[in-house]
Amino acid sequence: MRLFDEFSFSCPLKINCGSRALENLPAELSAFNANAPLILASRDQVGKKRIGSVVDAFKTSGLTLGIYDRLPDRPQPDLMPVLARMYRDGACDSILALGHGAVVDTAKCLNLMVSEGFHESVDEAGEEASDPGPLRPLMLVATAAGNGDEATGYANDGIRRLCSPRLIPTVVFIDPAMMVDRNDRDVVDGAMIALVHAVEAFLDDSAGPMCRAYAHTAIGLIMQHLPAALRKTDRKKNLSAVVNGQVAAGCAYFSSSPGICHVLATGLKEGTDLPLGFLMAMLLPHVVAEAGYNQPEQVGELLYPMVGADIFAVTAADLKTPRTIALFWEFFDALNAELSEKIPSAIVDSDMTVEQIERIRSHLASGSSDDHVARILEGARRGVTAMDN
């Protein structure tokens, strides 16, 4: 493994995982001298039963709870002052987010508003302008259908995308009892986003070896446990493993740069109703094949988290990259066998026109990257990787 001359990696997130993880909520809050959390959730997302399970974890703790469980499915800027007033009027001193997506975004943004020392530290472009200083404890009870963004320092306030390491949750709790039986489409969508972020972080030398270790873990957990979760085999346990992978992917993603698969899929999303994660999955084998020409040894090492040390060791060096690409196709086939809405194998299977694809290519490609983008999109259009030609 090559050690890049300069890199930065930070992961202040603590993970508390297991069948009784929720029981540790009061102790983790008390460790930060927090005694009055405001619980944020969405009944539509997690249901009353699981909100009740979180409340039950505090029954004998003596802690005072505030609850707002009607968060919308998108961050609402107008709601933030209401939540801030609820937090202050209730003398709350911490935040507990239950769920994923907009719920966690709202919790992160609220934490900025109510923490002392916050002075509009993020600029209008969503870039970090200055350190907002220490924030109040933010606990996250994770559920299925997240995509790893919950574990990052990114947050969407409904207007812009904010960025600061201070936004990373303090502790995440992953308990099988909280694995909501979401529809498979949402679960796979989130898992594919996390998987692509992990793969691209793994291939990003400048991110450093610690980032790569988190990405390695994420790839292995998601690819091993997601098909079993879709087959309803010990579903809650396998979903917990997938969520662990998503959290690890989020940690890696926040310490690396968004890769070309992320950028291309985001551009393609403007022309289709397909989930973003499905688009990322469709592009991933082509992105990996393209990378294989420039860094074959690095791409070949992707095989390790996919198959384990024994098979990796006996696979010839020149076969590792093509075997990695083949395993991605096999993985997507296994997922499609359980899905009613399939991950497309090629852009021609989506509802995008050639004109839309060309417009996206022209917009995203520039200079030396033009050939790379063109080859990736052409391969994805036909469903054939460059190595198959």
Rank of each mutant, 00 (worst) to 15 (best):
F7D: 04
F9I: 09
K14H: 11
N16I: 15
S19N: 09
L25S: 10
L25M: 13
N33C: 14
N35T: 15
L38N: 13
A41Y: 05
V46C: 08
T64E: 05
L71V: 11
L71F: 15
P72Y: 08
Q76M: 10
D78K: 08
L79C: 09
L83D: 04
R85L: 06
Y87G: 10
D89M: 03
A91N: 15
D93I: 05
L96I: 15
L98S: 11
G99E: 13
V103A: 12
K108Q: 05
K108F: 06
N111W: 15
M113H: 14
S115P: 14
G117Y: 11
E120I: 01
S121I: 01
A125T: 14
R136T: 07
P137N: 12
M139A: 15
L140E: 04
A144M: 13
N147M: 12
N147G: 07
D149S: 14
A151D: 13
G153S: 06
D157P: 03
R161T: 12
R161Y: 04
R161W: 06
L162F: 08
L162G: 07
T170L: 06
V172Q: 04
V172T: 14
I174V: 14
M178R: 05
M179F: 02
D184S: 12
D184F: 15
R185F: 02
M192I: 09
M192K: 01
L195N: 06
A198Y: 00
A201E: 07
F202Q: 03
P209I: 05
R212K: 14
A215N: 02
A215Y: 02
A215H: 02
H216V: 01
T217Y: 09
T217P: 14
A218R: 04
I219S: 01
G220Y: 01
I222L: 03
H225Q: 08
R235K: 15
L239W: 10
S240E: 10
N244T: 12
V247M: 06
A249R: 04
G267M: 02
M280W: 03
M282R: 00
A289Q: 05
Y293G: 06
Q298E: 12
V299S: 05
G300L: 05
E301R: 11
A309Q: 11
I311E: 09
A313H: 02
V314D: 02
V314A: 02
A317F: 00
L319P: 09
K320P: 00
T321Y: 01
F331V: 04
F332C: 04
D333E: 12
A337Q: 14
E341T: 11
S345A: 13
A346G: 09
I347D: 00
D349I: 02
S350A: 10
M352G: 00
T353R: 10
T353W: 08
R359T: 14
D370A: 13
H372D: 07
R382K: 11
R382T: 11
T385R: 10
A386R: 15
M387V: 04
